[in-house]
Amino acid sequence: MTAPPLLTVRNLRVTYPAAQGDIHAVRNVSFTLARERLGIVGESGSGKSTLGRAIMGLVPRPGRVAADELRLGAIDLRNLGESGFRRLRGRRIAMVLQDPKFALNPVMSVGHQIAETHRAHVRGSARAARRAALEMLHAVRIRDPERVFGLYPHQVSGGMGQRVMIAMMLIADPEVLIADEPTSALDATVQTQVLAILDELVRGRGMGLILISHNLPLVASFCDRVLVMYSGRVVETCGAGALRQARHPYTRGLLASLPELDHRRDVLPQLQRDPAWAEGA
């Protein structure tokens, strides 16, 4: 018997009303997440970030979220309300954003920002929160936590900033983490380090991870399963190892567009986009 899923999503829809008719950013997306690493790939505008935000209850007005089922463990997220969501965010489900340069508050020290998550969810003194933040900095392999605690975001490098971001989001022990392009803003060498830290923490804590990325090889190598999104809809779900055998023409098109080291190609294949895919054909 399999364990109950951490996250259940059935027919999730996100719509933005517009003068020319509603814009469907996410259309009838369904999946479940266990203690695993699920990748969501797709091009810009495919709705993958909106999907992550909808699960967090962070779709800005006037966007509307609807679903046949949207549960975090046993909690129904559909009619939770702002204060209900607030208690879950950071504590049960958290989100790492793309670029620490913009996602960290520039006028607050990084240590303070990490401790703040702790204080929002855990009863205790400021000193306890500080101690927890220092431990968390250590956990994301920052060598001199005491010194880094007092630094401001502009004083840390991109890789260190993203580790701070991870520390800030994991300090209250959530069971689900949505990582929205967590390494896209980083240099290639730093990407690997940050992913390794993310992997270690997610595995060690037995969390479920949703990795949102446009980077197919990264998702294929890092995740257990992959959802491919196109125009707000999931067009393909497969095991990460089986990505090469993907059947959907969009996925095949994405794969064919990847550069290969031992292959010289003068013309990149044109990526096909069929509006019918968005309608679920």
């Binding site: 962070l58 607030r86 879950l88 958290a94 996602a103 960290l104 929002a120 800030m168 209250a172």
Partner: peptide, 14 residues
Amino acid sequence: QEYILAALAKGLRP
């Protein structure tokens, strides 16, 4: 700004 989204995502009061 993005840091506002991050602050909300970590569960701070609005």
